[in-house]
Structures are given as structure tokens and as C-alpha cells.
């Protein structure tokens, strides 16, 4: 469903992605990990065209993301994204955060959008907070609302960019639980995360990146039990040591 073929990207002369090739099937959960600055976030932001790439091919449901005739807005409607810093709209209530794009982009009417929003808030356990503003919620609650906001567009795939990195430790699990539930319901997901427990439990495959390249790609069990590359071994020993 998502198909990277030798995708490369530069910021000026600095290469941030080099020849990334990866295929994600429908319903698959991929965890992208690696040291910071390895290009993980950039890789997933290419999928919904928030970051353009300069060479190679990236197709979502057989449509070239940076193709000349591709309607990137249509593409983005179909791919949900969850950000490290939640990025809820602080001037809107929780309910309006979920309704805005439904009404303005999908042209749903208010009552239809409200129904969808309330169902999703219930799913992430936030229905009691629908009238609150983001500033009144904890980080974990905000991130659950942000996941619901992305789901409100009925995406075919979800991208998670370090969704728990900005959270206090005690709030990590409530967000991971929502993500786990989503994975079990068959959502196609690409997650950049350092939560190795989540990766081991939920991911179908692990993609390990370093220096802008995909160094290793393996089923979760294999990756954790027997990493192939030196760099993945070093990374795992560092991240699992503490």
C-alpha cells in the first residue's frame, strides 16, 4: 500500500534520506527506529507529502506522492498523522478540533461530523472532555484527542511521529494502548518511536535507520533477538540498557 523505491532527499547539499526502499502492506504495523537525526521523521513525512523528496519513487495506493498530477490534498485526507507535540488547535474545543477538517475538507454537515467525533472520542476514552480546550488537558489526553482527530478523516493509514516523546512517563501507556488497539483493528501504521516494548508487542516489522539510510528491516522478533547489523546492535544495547 505504501511503497518507497530508492527515495532520496536533500536539504541543500546535505542528504537526509538516501535510497530508502520499503514496502508496507495493508494492515501492517511498521516501527521505524534509529538514533536521532537518522531521518526517521523525514521518512514518514514523505508519505503525506509534508516533506518533498528529490529522487526515487514513493507510491501510496499506486499513486506517486510527488507526481505532477497528484492531488496532495486528497492524499493527505486519506493518511492520518500524529505529531510529537500533539498540535491540537489551542483556540478550539476538543470537539471542534475533531470537527474542523471534517466540515471544511470533507464537507460533512455539523451533526454528521459531531457523531463521528463523539464516537472517536469514546474510542480513545475522551468523550467526557469534549467541551474542554487543549490547554486544560494533560499531555496524554491531548495526544489521544490528536489520534481521534486524525481518525475522524477515515484514513487508510496512520503516521505517528514520536507520539510519546513529549509525554511524562506515566502518560505513555495510555497513548500506546490506543495505538495498540488501533493496530489490532487492522489499521496500516508507520510509527517512529523509541518505545521498544510497544515495538516488540505490536509491530509486524522493524525498520532501523541510521544516517538517512534504512540499515535493517526485519520482523520484530528477529530484530530484537538477532539484529544483523553492527549499528542496530549498538543502538539496541544503548536503548535497552537503561
Amino acid at each position: 500500500m505504501i511503497k518507497f523505491d530508492k527515495v532520496s532527499k536533500w536539504y541543500g547539499t546535505f542528504q537526509v534520506l538516501s535510497d530508502c526502499t520499503l514496502e508496507v502492506a495493508k494492515g501492517e504495523v511498521i516501527v521505524v527506529c534509529g538514533p536521532s537525526g537518522s531521518g526517521k521523521s523525514t521518512l514518514i513525512k514523505c508519505v503525506n507529502a509534508l516533506e518533498p523528496y528529490q529522487s526515487g519513487s514513493l507510491k501510496v495506493e499506486d499513486i506517486e506522492v510527488c507526481g505532477r498530477s497528484t492531488d496532495q490534498r486528497k492524499l493527505r485526507q486519506r493518511i492520518g498523522m500524529v505529531f510529537q507535540n500533539f498540535e491540537l488547535y489551542p483556540h478550539l474545543s476538543v470537539l471542534d478540533n475533531l470537527r474542523l477538517a471534517q466540515v471544511k475538507v470533507l464537507k460533512r454537515n455539523i451533526s454528521g461530523a459531531t457523531d463521528v467525533a463523539m464516537q472517536l472520542l469514546e474510542r480513545v476514552g475522551m468523550q467526557a472532555h469534549q467541551a474542554k480546550f487543549p490547554g486544560q488537558l494533560s499531555g496524554g489526553q491531548q495526544q489521544r484527542v490528536a489520534i481521534a482527530r486524525a481518525l475522524a478523516m477515515n484514513p487508510v493509514a496512520m503516521l505517528f511521529d514520536e507520539p510519546t516523546s513529549a509525554l511524562d512517563p506515566e502518560m505513555v501507556s495510555e497513548v500506546l494502548d490506543v495505538m495498540t488497539q488501533l493496530a489490532q483493528q487492522g489499521m496500516t501504521m508507520m510509527c517512529v518511536t523509541h518505545e521498544m516494548g510497544f515495538a516488540r508487542r505490536v509491530a509486524d516489522r522493524i525498520v532501523f535507520m541510521d544516517g538517512g539510510s534504512i540499515v535493517e528491516e526485519a520482523p520484530a522478533e528477529d530484530f530484537f533477538n538477532a539484529p544483523q547489523s553492527r549499528r542496530a546492535k549498538d543502538f539496541l544495547s544503548m536503548i535497552l540498557a537503561h
Binding site: 493527505r76 505529531f83 498540535e87 488547535y89 477538517a101 471544511k104 486524525a150
Partner: peptide, 22 residues
Amino acid sequence: SQGQLRAALSTGMTYLQGMRYV
């Protein structure tokens, strides 16, 4: 923050919609 506009764009809004509503 630029992230606000990015969040708006990621839901399929146009640049002008993102500016206007977010």
C-alpha cells in the same frame, strides 16, 4: 508554530484554509 499549519495541512486543508481557521 509551524507545526500548527503542518497539522492543518496533514488533514487535507489548503494553505489558505490552514491560515484562516488555524
